[in-house]
Amino acid sequence: MASNKLRVAIAGAGAISQFHLIGWQAQADVEIVGICDPDKDKAHARGEAFGISRVFADMAEMLDETQPDAVDIITPVGSHARLVRIAADKGVHAMCQKPMTPTVAEAEALIADVGERVRFMVHENYRFRPHYAELAQRMQDGEVGRLRHARMTVRASAVWDYEGKEPFLLGRQPYLTDFRRLLVFEVLIHHLDALRAIIGEMDVVSATLDRINPALKGEDVALIQLRAENGALVVIDADIAAPGHPPLPTDRLELLGDADTLIYDRDRITLLSQPDAVSQHDLTANYQACFTGAVTDFTEGLRSGRKFQTDRLDNLKTLRLMESIYRAAGVEV
C-alpha cells in the first residue's frame, strides 16, 4: 500500500453488503473508492446510503478506474473464483464472502492460481462473534480441562414457518430454494468454522441429512457426528425448518470436559461450577460485531502483514470439513 490510508472497493450491493459497509465505516484511515453490482440501481442505493460516489456495474472496470488496494467481494458463491482471479491479476488484495467456492476442488485451484501475488481472506465471520470468541478463549484457558464431549444445537424457522408466514431466509435470499446443498453448505459452514476455532480440528464420523420444506432442493435438517483431534466426541443437531423458532439460527453449545462444563445458550455463557457468573451477550449487537470483526482482521492483516484468522488456507480446512459431511451422508459433491 502506497500510504497508511487503505483504499477499498466493494463488489456486490445485496442485502449483506450493508453489514460489510458498516464494518468498513468502523475502520480508521479507510476510503471506500467505489461500489459495483450488475444491478446498478442497487449499487447506486448503497452508494447513496454510505456516501460512495463512484458506482459501477462491472468489477474489473471499477478496479481499473479506482485503483484500490483491496476489494471486498460480497457476491453469490458462484462468482467468487472469477472475481478473486480478476483482483489478483490486477494486484488487488481480496476478501470474499463465504463459501470461498462451491467445491473444495475449485477452492484448491483458486488458491493455486492466486498464489502469493496478493493477500486473500475469506469473510467467514462466526469466529468473530463475541460469544464464540469468548468460548474459544475460555477453552484455550483450560476452564473445562480436557474436552471429552461437545454438542451443538442449531434451531431456526429460516426456511419453514407457520402457515401463511414467509420464511425469513427464503424471503431475503430466494435463490437458496434451488441450492442442492443448503443447510450444511450455507449455514452450518459457519458453525463448523467456529467449532474449529473453539475446539480445534475434527474428522467426520457420520452424517444424516433430511428435508422438511418440500419446496427446497437441499437439506434443512442435519445430524452430524465428528471426532476432535484429542478424541472428544462432537455432535451437531441442526434444524432450520423449525416453526416458532427465531428466523435467524439460535445456537446452544455444551462443552463438557473432565474438570467442568461450559455452556453457551442463545445469549449467555455459563461455567457450571460458577452458575451465578453468567456472561450475557447482546445477539443483535453481536450480529454486526462479527462483520466488523472480520473486516477489522482483514484491514489489520493488510497493514501489519500478519496472517488473517480466516486466511484462504485456513478456510480451506472448513470447506473440506463441510464437503466431508456431504460425502458421509451419501450426497454427491
Results as ranks from 00 to 15, higher is better:
Pro102His: 05
Val77Glu: 10
Arg7Ser: 13
Asp220Ala: 05
Ile212Met: 06
Ile32Leu: 15
Ile16Met: 15
Gly171Gln: 02
Gly47Lys: 05
Ser79Pro: 03
Cys96Ser: 12
Leu255Asn: 09
Pro99Ile: 13
Asp161Cys: 09
Glu229Gln: 14
Arg180Met: 01
Gly91Tyr: 06
Pro130Ala: 02
Ala81Pro: 04
Ala60Thr: 04
Gly330Pro: 02
Gln97Pro: 06
Asp251Tyr: 07
Ile198Val: 14
Thr296Tyr: 02
Asp258Val: 08
Ile199Lys: 10
Gly47Ile: 00
Asp178Ala: 14
Trp24Gly: 09
Arg180Leu: 04
Leu319Asp: 11
Ala158Arg: 01
Val55Lys: 03
Asp69Trp: 06
Gly305Asp: 04
Trp160Pro: 02
Ala222Tyr: 00
Leu262Ala: 07
Trp24Val: 15
Asp251Val: 15
Pro214Met: 03
Asp29Trp: 04
Arg117Thr: 12
Ser17Glu: 14
Ile73Ser: 00
Arg312Leu: 12
Ser79Gly: 12
Lys317Tyr: 04
Gln173Val: 05
Arg327Thr: 13
Arg117Phe: 07
Gly23Met: 15
Leu223Val: 12
Asp193Glu: 10
Ala215Val: 11
Leu283Tyr: 08
Arg138Asp: 08
Gln280Thr: 04
Leu209Pro: 03
Ala329Thr: 05
Val118Asp: 10
Val221Asp: 08
Ile269Thr: 06
Val55Pro: 05
Gln140Asp: 14
Gln280Phe: 07
Thr101Asn: 13
Ile16Ser: 13
Arg211Val: 08
Val221Ala: 01
Glu61Ile: 11
Asp141His: 06
Val55His: 02
Ser324Trp: 00
Lys98Thr: 01
Ala329Gly: 07
Arg148Val: 03
Gly34Arg: 09
Arg327Ser: 11
Leu209Val: 05
Thr103Ile: 08
Glu143Lys: 07
Ala328Trp: 01
Gly142Glu: 08
Asp276Trp: 00
Ala133Met: 08
Ala329Met: 04
Pro247Glu: 14
Val55Glu: 07
Lys5Ala: 11
Val295Gly: 05
Ser279Met: 14
Met95Leu: 14
Ala45Arg: 06
Glu124His: 13
Val144Glu: 11
Gln25Trp: 09
Thr284Ile: 13
Asn4Cys: 02
His93Ser: 03
Ile263Asp: 00
Asp260Leu: 06
Asp210Ala: 10
Lys317Pro: 00
Arg151Ala: 06
Thr261Leu: 04
Thr66Ala: 10
Pro102Trp: 08
Gly91Glu: 07
Ser206Thr: 06
Val204Trp: 09
Gln27Arg: 13
Thr101Trp: 01
Val205Gln: 02
Arg46Leu: 12
Asp297Ile: 09
Asp89Lys: 05
Val187Gln: 05
Leu209Cys: 02
